[in-house]
Each structure stands twice: as C-alpha cells, then as structure tokens.
Design a protein around this nucleic acid. Structure first.
Length: 947
RNA sequence: GCCCGGGUGGCGGAAUGGUAGACGCAGCGGACUUAAAAUCCGUUGUCUUCGGGCGUGUGGGUUCGAGUCCCACCCCGGGCACCA
C-alpha cells in the first residue's frame, strides 16, 4: 500500500474504471430527491481550458458528488455553446469550416474535463450547433413569434466593419466591437427582435424569489432600470427674446387669475385632439381584437396600419400647436425648470430649424451633424464637457407659465424616455453643469427643510418643496403624487413607468448560427416554417465569408434562399441567423431530455428536474445570458411548456484565477485609454526588453494574455486530485486569486499525509465497526477520535452545501492532523480505539471523495473494500458525538481577556461565574474595584464589569 | 459619478456580536541522512522593563463586549456609465 500520494500510479486507472462502469450516468430512480447541478454552457475555443476554468467545474463537481452520495438523483450534464462568431472567423481565416473545428475543440474540452475527474454524464451531452438541438431552438423561436414576442423592424444597429456583422448594444464595449475592438458604425437594416421589454416588470419582481448573490440581482435591477415618473406635454413657442424668469418680471402666483387662465390655456393647447383620443381608443380595441386573432401576423399588420395613421394625426396636431413631450422622475421639481433639452435626433429638431432664424438654424444643423458623426463612445465619454446649442424656441412650463429656452444637447439620449427633458439645474447634477456652462438660471425648489438653504445642486429626494406656489412645504413624495394627479387631471400627461431595458436584438448576418424559421412571401408577409419541416438546416457551403453589404452569406446560396411558401408561391427564406444567446437560453431544459426527437423535451422530465438547483459560472454573464434565459423560461412557462418561471433557483459565481502578465510602459506617441496602465506584451517580448520598461500585473488567465496554465500541465505536476484540492482550498469560492505553485505543493503534501495515515490505520481497520461501536462507552483518545470524526463529517457537509469549499478542505486537514496525533499517542490501540479509528478511516475516505475522488477510490480499495466511493452513502454526523466534553471559557474583566479556564461543557452560569471570580489573575485586576455586573455566555465566556 | 464586492500576520486566508489569526504557504530551530531532497517534530502578529501593552484601512458611535452592527471618510477590485 502506498504511503504517499503518487497520482501517476492510479488516477488514470480510476478514470478508466469509472468510464467502464458508466458511473456518472444520471440516476432517475423513483423515491429519491432530485438535484440539478449545472455549470455555465461553455463556448469551446481553440485555446482549450486553463486551470482557471476548473475553478468553475471542480466546486460544482464536489457538490454534485456529495449529493449523489447523499442519495439524490443528480443531473450533472455538460454541453457546448458551439455557434458563434469566433469559430466562424477562425474557420474563415484557416480556410476551413466551423463544424469539424468546433467538434475538435469540444473534444479537447471534454478530454480536459475528464482529466480532472469531473463527473459529467456525457451521454446527455450535445452542441448547440447539432441540428437535433437547433431544430428546437427554432421551435422556441416560433413559440415566441406566435405570442407576439418576436418581430422585425428596421433599426439603427451597431455595425462592425471588420467582423462585418451587427452587434447587440450589449456587445459593444466603449464604442468598440467587444470581439475585435474596431470602432462601431451605425447601419440601418431590418432586424429581428425578441420583445423582452414586455417582461421587464416580471423580470424585476421575480428577482425576489430566487437565491442569487445580491450583487448580481442588483446588476440586473440596474440593467432593467425601472423608473417611475411623469410624462407630459409642454407648449412650444418660437422666436422672441431669450426670456427667463428674471427678465420677464415676477411670475403670476397661484390664485392669480392670470396664472389660472394661462394654465388652462396651455393645457387646452397641448391636450390631445379629439382625433388623437379617438385613435387611442381605436388602438386599444385593435389590440384587443388582435389578441383573439389566430396567428401573430395579423396582429402585427394591424398595429403597423394603426401606427402609420396615428403618425399622420400626430403630425397634424403638431402643425397646429407644437408641443414637447418630456419625461421626468422629479415632477416635484417642476417649478424649478429653467430650460428644456432635447436630443439632437429628436423629431422636433427639424421643426425648430424651419422656424429659427438663419444663424440659429445653421448652428443647429452643425451641432446635429457633429453629434451624429461622433461615435457613441466619444459622445458618452465620462468627463466630457457639456455641449449644446440654443434652438431659438421656448417651452411653457404648465405649472407656472414660465417661458424657458429649449436647448439641443447630446447629453440627452433619444432612445430613453421621450428624448426630451425639463432642465432643473437646482436639483440635477447634469442639468446644473449644463446651466453653469451656458449661463442658465438656477432656482431652488427643494430643500432639506424650509429655510435650510442647502448648497445647490441638491438632488436629494428627502426634502420639502419650496418656491413652489400652492405646493410649498410638501415632501418630495407627496409633491410627486399631487403634481402627477394635477397633470393627469389637466389632461396634458400621465404618470408613467419607464424601463432602460431594450428589446433583445437577435439577428446576425452570419453563417454560423441557428437559422430563423421564417419565409418571406412575395407580398412581404412573414410565414413560419411548419413544425414538420424543422429544422431549417444550415447548409454546408464552401464560401461563407460575410458579404460586406450587411446581408448574411446565406443570401448567396440560392438553394437555401429560394423556397415555396405555404401557399405554393415562390418565397424567400430568412437569411439572418440567431445570436448565440438564443441557443444558451434553453439548454438547461434540453439536458432534462436531451435526445428526444419528437419534441424539445418531455414535460414530465422537465417537471422532474427543473429548476436548476445550483447554477455555477462567472460573474461576467451577470446580466445578458442570465436575463435572456430567465425571459425564455417565463415565456415557456406562460405557454405551459415548463413548470417554473425561474430557471435557476440558486446561482453562484466563482472567482477567477489570476496569473502574472507582462506589460510595458507606453512609448512616445502611444496613448493609453482611461484605466489602462500599460501595453500588454508577450512573455517573449518581456524577456527581450530592458527590465525597467516591463512590469507585471495580475490578470485573468486567458489565451490572449499568454499567461495560461493548462490542466494538462497542472495535472502532470500535482495530479488531478492535487489540482482539485488546491483550487478548492486556495481561497473562498467566489474570490479571485493568483495561481501559485507553492500553494499547490501544500495540496499534494496534504494528500500524501492522507495516504500515510490510511496506511498506518489499515492494520487496525475493523470492517464490522458499525455493529459494535455504539455499544461501547468511549473515553480518552478513542472519544477524541470519534469526536473529531463527527465534527469533520458535520462541517464538511455543511461547508459543501454553502459553497465554502476552502473551509471544507481545511476541516479535512484538521481531521487528519487530529487522527495523526491520536495514533501517535496510542500506537498500540485497544479495541475501543480500533473501532473509533475504523470509523475515522472510512469517514475520512468518504468525505474526501468529492474533493479527491481518485485518491478516495484508491484508498477505499487499498483497505480491502469493493466498489466506488461515489456510490457509497455519505456518512451521517451525530452532533452529540461531535460535542465537546470540556470547553475553554474566556474570562474577561471589563471586556479584556485576563484568563482562560477549562470547564465541563455543561457548566452552569453560576459555576462559570464563581470559577471566574476564583481566578487569581482575575482577582488582581479586580483589586480596589467594585463589581457592577457579570455577563455569562454559557460555554463561551464570563465578563466581569467593575470599576 | 452611480451600483456591487473587498481591505485581518511575510503571503493565501479563518472567525452564528463572545478567547482575532483556524487551515495552508513561506520562514526559523531541530530529528533522520555522509550530504541533499523528501518526510517528521517544534516554533512563528507585534512591542515589552516579562507585569503586560498594542493590534482586523482611518476617525467616530452603539454595546458588558465590535473584524463582525451604525455614521463619516480613505484605498483596492469588478460592473454600469450623461438613463431625465
């Protein structure tokens, strides 16, 4: 029997035996509880895995292995998110096709995951690019479409001229393509969208029912970005002097007939005309009617027709009385409005140009051109000074009749709210800055208390209204309610909820993605491909380089494009493919029933396995993937296909493994962007440069940084179990930590100590210990061993459950140390101790098994036991046996530790207090003082308060 | 600027408001060895007049008692970023 950890001697052998026994095939025995443990769907890249990726897979594996041993039916699958740009780009570069390449990469991933002993059920594996999988991605697309949640609209999209593809807003980072770093341009083409905004409120609300890290939930809340406010109209007047409150004399105050008349007049002027009201009612009835129509096309068509007509009506109304629609979350500050700002893209800008004098019109045109030419990146740059141009027009504040200038500025965005705001510089930082820049008036209308005179800007919401006519003295909340009601009563606006969240753009003008199952008819209608014709296969082609004109390479394949529609006429197949986030929004459902050819999944199977009980992956997917997957699940729930409306009950984010990465200082002429500290270089370059030019930073391991340690390298050096133990032990699960060679040797040493201990205990091992151990009254060393055993079992179980893998490993170490000490004390154990040691021996191997499964099986066999530890029952800890007989009691005087006493665990408070008072050390500290109070915490401490 | 984490020995880290530093790494001393590696044993926050004092980013507060709770601030990491 080996008395040290020699992984080459046995690890590969055990992996072979596990595979031969089909050990990890999902158990679905009735009568057992279920557990679904899932890692994020990885995208297989040519670089293979690093030990950093294992930071994800190993902990999940530990949890799933323990759950299996605890008797759960465990679903622990792995598959591959195989569609996507990098594979396509790489295949183009290498003049090959993505499919076989991705197959090879996935094979590598699998080999590496097997190498570290992850217990995946590979019989359930699939790739999202398998036709048997994407058939059902297309089917779900149809479900969305049929529920009015998939639609096409021309939209300004982000265009990457290098990838020749469209990027989602979320895929643009700092104005650059997140993949290739090219500045993104704008392009208008028809795009497919999923209407995730229809689920915004539910996506927000249901965060409360899932067990996710609070930080991730908060990020999703911010992304959804719900804000309550008021949207209302302001009358627009052209020309005239640049009047402000100051030079237009005192404003009429509440009660003044002039003001009341003015308010009425303004309200009537900007009230929707009867035509618009009629159109609104019509819209509601169209919507109702559309819901009862079978098929979404009719609904969409009806809505299009309506919108076209509504637009005409709007234009008419605007011709008559131009008005400006603004959205504000701070209607309570309406008396502090000193200007308005509209986005350069706002439709009113055209009208303003037409009405302005030639000089102003010229300025506006220039400004608009400038704003349009600027990349989003520059326009939204953090500390950029405010810019803007006066439009020559004014808006009438409906609350006090003030005539305020309308400005055009790019700090207001067209795609949020109405693209227009009321400027309240007294109570908004950005407006304050803008007012300062252009010399606009700043008025105080909120204060922490009447007369407090807080410095402006004062954006706080806990305050009261001042200088606000009849609303004087109201709290912000009360003022918002009253003014909201007032505006609604006046008929010029309404309270409204706005979301930042935008609809999910899924169109990709790319080859390597899931085809969209839609046929465009000659008449420009959309037809869904019938179920029995799914999947729409991605054709095999030789040349699929991007066309460069924005259309997919599929456009150039006549046999793909040309089809007959449902009515037998010639039609055109949709050539856009779906972005990868679509594929990864339901794979967790397919794992429940991965090879079903008749439907996406059998409802019973999904009913059984869903939701995912532990979903584990990096925090970089905090928003997009998790939000999209939640959205699809909710849609499928509403359609009755899945039993849950949240897919992932519990989410855990692992930390990254960091590695030193070389950088050099910038050379003359090179510019660093904000937050960048140097230019990243290769290790070869670093060696070639003088040392003073090179510095190292800890960065996430990634192929592009050249700082990767592969699982192969690590396993060769430290063994699979050594790597597993080290990665678990090195830091708390969710924390990023540098990869360190020294730490890994500690893990190897620990495993060697386990082998040595088992070798020493083996001669004393009594396989029948269970039958007699509870009949014997243990004392001394035997009792200590039993206590250590049950403590270790209880703590391991609890720590794995709460994702505290580092303390799980440390408690194994402590356990080994304690048993070691026991046999050193009693090298010749008596029968009682032999029983205790036998229990310790078995328990140690079993609770070690999730973390170091190869070693556990090797040790298990070495002491003469058959079978795999994976199939053995998880030991049960007994809190009574784990309890200490004696405890150390801290004795404090005035909160400072003065003595520690050893006392029986059950000592009463009175016993503890008198023991404390009897302590000589305590008495010296009590000399000359009067005891005022004694605090006794049973089993813990006594604190004597004296002065 | 906003949001989310986090700041504890030389290092990674542990600690339901109750003895700060578990466990490991590195260091130091010793055993074994011709020697080294490996292994094992001991030791290791800091100052000290050896009584004890000081110690969990800083300053306050609550408490019999604070790494832990509250307030203000500083620093580090990540995310979002002119969202009205």
């Amino acid at each position: 029997m080996a008395d040290r950890y020699e992984p080459v001697q046995f690890e590969a052998r055990w992996r072979k035996r596990w595979a031969e026994a089909d050990l990890f095939r999902t158990r679905e025995e009735p009568g057992r509880p279920k557990f679904y443990g899932l890692d994020f769907f990885p995208y297989p890249s040519g670089a293979g895995l690093s030990v950093g990726h294992c930071r994800n897979y190993i902990p999940t594996d530990v949890l799933c292995r323990m759950k299996t041993m605890q008797g759960f039916n465990v679903l622990h699958p792995m598959g591959f998110d195989a569609f996507g740009l990098p594979a396509e780009n790489e295949a183009i570069a290498k003049k090959t096709t993505p499919a076989p390449m991705i197959d090879r990469y996935a094979e590598t991933y699998r080999r590496q995951m097997d190498l570290v002993g992850i217990s995946y059920d590979w019989s359930r594996s699939f790739k999202s690019s398998d036709p048997s999988y994407y058939k059902w991605t297309q089917w779900i697309f149809k479900v969305l479409y049929q529920r009015g949640l998939a639609y096409r609209k021309p939209a300004s999209v982000n265009w990457c001229p290098v990838d020749n593809t469209v990027l989602a807003d979320e895929e643009v980072q700092g104005g650059l393509c997140w993949r290739c770093g090219t500045p993104v341009e704008k392009k208008w083409i028809p795009q497919w969208f999923f209407k995730i905004t229809a689920y915004a409120q539910r996506l927000l609300d249901d965060l409360d029912k899932i067990d996710w890290p609070e930080g991730i939930k908060q990020m999703q809340r911010n992304w959804i970005g719900r804000s309550e406010g008021v949207e209302f109209s302001m009358r627009v007047v052209f020309g005239g002097p640049a009047a402000s409150r100051a030079d237009s004399g005192p404003l009429p105050m509440p009660g003044d007939p002039d003001l009341e008349a003015l308010r009425t007049e303004v309200a009537i002027e900007v009230q929707p005309s009867p035509e618009v009201e009629q159109a609104r009612r019509l819209a509601a009835s169209i919507e109702d009617a559309a819901r009862s129509i079978e098929g979404p096309t009719a609904f969409e068509k009806a809505m299009d027709d309506f919108e076209r007509h509504a637009e005409k009506i709007q234009v008419k109304v605007q011709d008559k009385v131009p008005y400006l629609r603004v959205f504000t979350t701070r209607i309570d500050t309406i008396f502090g409005v000193t200007f308005c700002v509209i986005a350069p893209e706002h439709p009113l800008v055209e009208t303003l140009i037409a009405q302005a004098d030639s000089e102003t019109a010229e300025a506006i045109r220039n400004y608009r051109t400038e704003a349009a030419s600027m990349g989003e990146q520059d326009r939204l740059a953090a500390e950029r000074e405010k810019t803007g141009v006066f439009s020559g027009a004014y808006a009438i504040n409906p609350a006090n009749g003030a005539r305020v200038p309308i400005w055009i500025a790019d700090y207001v965005l067209m795609n949020y709210g109405t693209g227009a705001i009321m400027g309240v510089p007294g109570h908004d930082e950005r407006d304050f800055e803008f007012a300062g820049k252009f010399g606009l008036e700043v008025v105080r209308v909120i204060d922490s208390a009447v007369g407090a005179n807080e410095p402006l800007p004062f954006p706080a919401k806990d305050g009261v209204m001042v200088n606000s006519g009849e609303y004087e003295g109201l709290t912000v909340a009360e003022g918002q309610r009253r003014l909201g009601e007032w505006i609604e009563g006046l008929g010029i606006g309404e309270r409204k909820v706005n979301f930042k969240l935008r609809d999910w753009l899924i169109s990709r003008q790319r080859y390597w993605g899931c085809p969209i199952p839609v046929i465009h008819t000659k008449d420009g209608e959309e037809q869904l491909v019938p179920d029995d014709q799914l999947p729409v296969y991605l054709p095999e082609v030789e040349n699929y380089e991007p066309s460069g004109d924005g259309s997919s390479p599929l456009t150039r394949i006549p046999e793909f494009v040309n089809v007959t529609d449902l009515d037998g006429r010639l039609g055109r197949r949709e050539t856009d493919t779906m972005g990868g986030f679509a594929c990864s929004s339901w794979y967790f459902l397919r794992f429940c029933d991965p090879h079903n050819e008749d439907r996406a999944w059998d409802k019973d199977k999904v009913d059984y396995w869903m939701p995912v009980d532990a979903y584990v992956g990096g925090a970089e997917h905090a928003v997009m993937h998790l939000l999209y997957a939640r959205f699809w699940t909710k849609v499928l729930f509403d359609a009755g296909y899945v039993p849950v409306d949240e897919p992932f009950q519990r989410l855990q984010n692992q930390g990254m493994l960091l590695a030193p990465t070389p950088f050099r200082k910038p050379r003359p002429g090179e510019k660093l962007s904000v937050g960048q500290e140097g230019i990243q270089i290769t290790f070869d370059e670093a060696r070639a440069l003088p040392p003073e030019e090179v510095f190292f930073r800890m960065e996430k391991m990634s192929k592009s940084k050249g700082n990767v340690v592969t699982p192969e390298e690590a396993v060769e050096k430290y063994g699979a179990d050594g790597v597993r133990i080290f990665e678990l032990f090195v830091a708390p699960f969710e924390q990023s930590v540098p990869w360190s060679e020294e730490g890994a040797t500690g893990a190897v040493r620990f495993l060697s100590r386990v082998f040595k201990l088992v070798a020493e205990l083996a001669p004393h091992y009594d396989r029948q210990w269970k039958t007699s151990i509870d009949a014997i009254d243990m004392e001394g060393v035997a009792r200590d061993v039993r206590r250590a055993t049950h403590k270790a079992i209880l703590k391991s179980t609890h720590d794995i459950e709460r994702f505290a893998f580092n303390t799980y490993i440390s408690c194994l170490m402590t356990f080994v140390n304690e048993v070691n000490e026991a046999i050193r004390k009693s090298p010749d154990p008596d029968p009682a101790l032999r029983l205790a040691l036998s229990e310790a021996l078995e328990s140690l191997i079993l609770i070690l098994s999730p973390a170091a499964p190869h070693s556990a099986d090797e040790l298990w066999e070495s002491i003469g036991n058959a079978g795999f530890t994976f199939l053995h029952d998880w030991p049960t800890g007994d809190p009574a046996l784990a309890a200490d007989d004696e405890v150390q009691i801290a004795i404090q005087v005035n909160g400072k530790l003065r003595d520690t006493l050893t006392m029986p665990a059950g000592a009463s408070q009175i016993e503890m207090e008198s023991a404390a008072r009897a302590s000589a050390k305590v008495q010296t500290h009590l000399e000359g003082k009067t005891v005022r109070k004694v605090v006794v915490v049973p089993g813990r401490l006594v604190n004597i308060v004296a002065n």
